[in-house]
């Protein structure tokens, strides 16, 4: 009571009804509303939106199937199953190459009805394969459609990228990919990919079996 500042005669007189002035004056202020479905304001750059599985510049996947993200997940929303991969095509008894590493993520699923968008998976990822986008419009009318699979999570192919499987760029090792020495798919990779195209349109579906957990 004692700290209340003493106004003049008129401010004392109208103090009990000052709120009316506030609400009246607010009517003439500019409206800050985002007219959502028509106008979408960008989120903060660091906003935790939908995940994305990144690629190396030649199109190979960064994910090495280590499952660290799945282990870090507090909500058990991530399911990863790794598999070996090598440069030998399927027709010659190998597996084909999806990531520069020894292994790759054969199955990768994120259940968006469990995921709390905390970002611990991003922190856990040793290859920066998993990052988050700013995309947030995820509502759907059934639970099954909100389990996102590897195909949905993988980043789209940019120019210079080549859809795996294909061997590593010639003369490069796994570590060279992280040193930034690979900048785009080489002609040899392109040639390999063309040769084995028929073989892998089939095998690409086999890699995503076990979708229905």
């Amino acid at each position: 009571m004692a700290e209340e500042q003493k106004g003049g005669f008129f401010s004392d007189l109208f103090a009990p009804v000052a709120g009316f002035g506030v609400s009246f004056a607010t009517m003439f202020r500019k409206i800050p509303t985002e007219e959502y479905p028509e106008v979408k304001w960008p989120t903060a750059p660091r906003y935790h939106g939908r995940h994305q599985l990144n690629r190396h510049p030649d199109g190979l996947e960064k994910c090495v199937g280590c499952e660290l993200c799945a282990w870090a997940c507090p909500a058990d929303a991530i399911f990863v199953e790794g598999a070996d991969n090598d440069d030998t095509p399927v027709s010659e008894g190998g597996t084909g190459r999806y990531s520069p590493g020894e292994r790759f993520g054969r199955i990768y699923q994120i259940n968006y009805l469990r995921c709390i968008f905390c970002g611990l998976c991003i922190e856990a990822c040793p290859t920066r394969a998993l990052t988050m986008t700013n995309f947030y419009e995820l509502a759907d009318d059934n639970r099954a459609d909100l389990i996102f699979t590897k195909e949905q999570l993988l980043a789209p192919l940019q120019s210079g990228m080549l859809a795996p499987p294909h061997p590593m760029a010639e003369g490069m090792e796994e570590r060279d990919y992280y040193l930034g020495k690979v900048t785009k798919a080489t002609d040899a990779q392109q040639q390999w990919s063309d040769e084995h195209a028929a073989e892998y349109t089939v095998s690409s579906t086999t890699t995503s079996e076990g979708e229905t957990r």
Binding site: T133, A144, D145, T149, E151, L154, A163, T201, E211, T212
Partner: peptide, 20 residues
């Protein structure tokens, strides 16, 4: 039963949605 149902998504190729 659920485990026998076809997958709900198009798993044909590695072409994802352009999220960017």
């Amino acid at each position: 039963p659920t485990q026998l149902q076809p997958a709900t998504h198009d798993h044909g190729g590695y072409v994802g949605k352009n999220l960017l």
